[in-house]
């Protein structure tokens, strides 16, 4: 069974249940949107899927990715990609350094360099290898962040309001690019957003959490 499957997942603080029990199946190429008011536990749900849920939050349930139970794996073995509303490019690394950090395929240095250059060119960022992330525009930074996730060859992608900090024009472009890339690679994806346009563009089923 391929795709991302959540089985009776709950997220709680102490005795108070924030999310769930949630049963959900995301097929390859599908983007499921999660809607809910602030503080409803949407980001906590994503943190649980990543395996980085901070105390005092705790969660239960099973997460299957392409049929494997990943619920108890350390984050680095889950093969999940995540994009936040901040791009979180490592400020001490160049653009190429950031991409190389995530790149999984190819081990020899020259091949890795070529893959990164080709990928940058494909995203309209040819020649950006040695740039300092701090000097890029918001849209450029978003592209590099997306590319970093894609080069790490994830099996599913989580989107935590990744477009909300962008200005309206850039926002549309980046959203279209991101969704097209996810579809082209047949990646299952979960999108957390407040924006109706995001949800419409995602086109997949909508799940509501919290009492909204």
């Amino acid at each position: 069974m391929s795709g991302l499957v959540l089985q009776s997942v709950t997220v709680s603080v102490g005795a108070r249940q924030l999310v769930g029990p949630l049963d959900l199946s995301v097929t390859p190429g599908q983007v499921v949107s999660i809607l809910g008011p602030s503080g409803a536990g949407k980001s906590s749900l994503l943190a649980f899927l990543c395996g980085v849920l901070p105390p005092p939050l705790h969660a239960q349930g099973t997460v299957l990715l392409n049929g494997d139970n990943i619920s108890n794996l350390p984050p680095e073995q889950r093969r999940l990609g995540i994009l936040f509303q901040d791009d979180l490019l490592f400020p001490h690394l160049s653009v190429a350094g950031n991409l190389a950090f995530g790149l999984r395929s190819a081990s020899n240095r020259r091949d890795r360099g070529r893959i990164i250059s080709d990928a940058l060119a494909g995203f309209g960022l040819a020649g950006y290898e040695t740039r300092d992330p701090a000097t890029l525009s918001g849209g450029e930074r978003s592209r590099v962040a997306l590319l970093r996730v894609l080069l790490s060859a994830p099996r599913a992608v989580l989107l935590d309001e990744p477009f909300s900090r962008l200005d309206p024009a850039t926002r549309q472009t980046i959203r279209a690019l991101t969704l097209a890339q996810l579809r082209a690679r047949s990646l299952p994806a979960l999108l957390v957003s407040h924006d109706v346009d995001d949800v419409v563009a995602a086109g997949g089923p909508v799940v509501r959490v919290g009492n909204a």
């Binding site: 901070p54 490592f90 950090f101």
Partner: peptide, 28 residues
């Protein structure tokens, strides 16, 4: 920001590598 190290681990780096390549340089 803890999301730096979260991101790094999801990109496939183990604890030690994350500390050496992300945490330590940012704390230099």
């Amino acid at each position: 920001d803890p999301r730096f190290t979260d991101t790094a681990r999801l990109l496939g780096a183990g604890r030690l590598r994350v500390w050496l390549t992300v945490t330590a340089p940012l704390l230099l």
